[in-house]
Amino acid sequence: MASYKRVDGAALVTGSGSGMGRAVSVVLSVAGITRLYLTDLNRTGLEETKSTITSLNLPSPPTISLIPGDISSPAFISSLFSQIPQLDYAVNCAGIMGETALTTEATLEGFDKLNAVNYRGLWMCVKEELKLMLKNDITPYTGFTFSPSESQRRGQRGSIINIASQLGLVGKTQAAIYTATKAAVLSLTRSDAIDYSGPPHHIRINSVCPGVIETPLTMNSYEGTDGLEKAVGLTPMGRIGLPSEVADTVVWLCSGESSFVTGSGVVVDGGYVIH
């Protein structure tokens, strides 16, 4: 498989042992990333992601480091980032669905577990990712421009993409805690973008809001075929999305082609939220 150079340097992908995290890791590799740090609770899944990338026989495959662990653990976060000397891109995919329950029936333990991964864990990652990226020089944009000065104006020190959800924008029955964690990710993204996107930092921070995507996490969140059919029925495009479609959006947000995009929540949902 031929690669097409859209990104260069080092990237971290959390939750890269399966689903969207795996797809993002693969597409980043195809897009030209040279150093890839992958983390997930599932060590076997990480090995499978690495094998998938290796099997592509890319002309310039990335150097891959697998660092299994739990991003909800401050001790693991410290260990993880001690192994990453330099970082250009970060994609925070790690997340869980949690229990399906009405608020009056939900448990404090379930609330804490969801927030520990989806919001607190992601925040801890973003904090360390920013620290690393602030050490970078500004890299000029290398694509087509109308004048030499545009390359400098479109430069960046780094790009962070947080995986939120369409459910951070709309509601879902018996999922109040989950939807709130994803709304928190969107709010975090907007505020961090205000603080770090402009001079002197030049780090862009965006979110992606996937809809019903064909991943184990999503499929397991629907109780039976009827629930899935109902969700697809609310999607104007009338189908489930593919992990590769989310990954392509993530790579665009990493690349200089999206150089004037920050603080956004790019919705990749087949039109679900406009129904």
Results as ranks from 00 to 15, higher is better:
Leu28Ala: 13
Gly21Ala: 04
Arg153Val: 11
Gly155Met: 06
Thr63Asp: 04
Val126Ser: 07
Ser3Tyr: 06
Gly143Tyr: 12
His201Arg: 13
Asn118Gln: 08
Leu102His: 13
Thr189Lys: 06
Val266Phe: 13
Thr104Met: 13
Gly224Arg: 14
Lys131Cys: 01
Glu129Tyr: 08
Thr262Arg: 15
Gly271Arg: 11
Lys5His: 09
Glu129Val: 01
Gln83Met: 06
Asn220Val: 03
Gly238Tyr: 09
Ser191Lys: 15
Thr63Arg: 08
Leu41Tyr: 02
Asp192Val: 14
Glu245His: 04
Ile53Val: 01
Thr52Arg: 14
Leu46Tyr: 03
Glu47Thr: 03
Arg43Val: 09
Cys93Asn: 04
Thr235Lys: 12
Ile84Gly: 03
Val26Ser: 01
Ile240Asn: 05
Asp112Glu: 15
Asn206Pro: 07
Pro148Ile: 08
Gly263Met: 09
Pro61Ser: 04
Ser55Ala: 05
Val250Asp: 03
Leu66Ser: 01
Val27Met: 13
Ile160Cys: 02
Met124Lys: 10
Leu188Gly: 01
Thr103Gly: 02
Ile205Tyr: 04
Cys125Leu: 14
Leu228Val: 05
Ser82Ile: 07
Val30Thr: 08
Glu229Arg: 15
Asn162Trp: 09
Gln156Gly: 00
Val250Tyr: 12
Thr63His: 14
Gly265Leu: 10
Asp226Ser: 12
Thr34Arg: 02
Gly265Asp: 05
Thr235Asp: 02
Leu188Lys: 13
Pro148Gln: 11
Leu87Asp: 00
Thr39Gln: 11
Ser29Met: 07
Leu102Met: 10
Met97Arg: 15
Met124Pro: 00
Pro210His: 09
Val13Gly: 03
Thr103Cys: 12
Gly69Leu: 14
Gly224Cys: 09
Gly211Pro: 03
Gly69Arg: 12
Thr189Tyr: 03
Gly270Met: 11
Ser72Gln: 01
Phe76Trp: 10
Val126Gly: 06
Gly241Met: 06
Gly270Cys: 03
Val212Thr: 08
Ser258Cys: 10
Tyr178Asp: 06
Leu114Trp: 04
Asn220Gln: 13
Val246Glu: 10
Glu48Ser: 12
Cys209Asn: 12
Leu58Pro: 06
Leu38Gln: 02
Thr100Met: 15
Pro243Ala: 05
Val117Leu: 07
Ile84Gln: 02
Thr14Val: 07
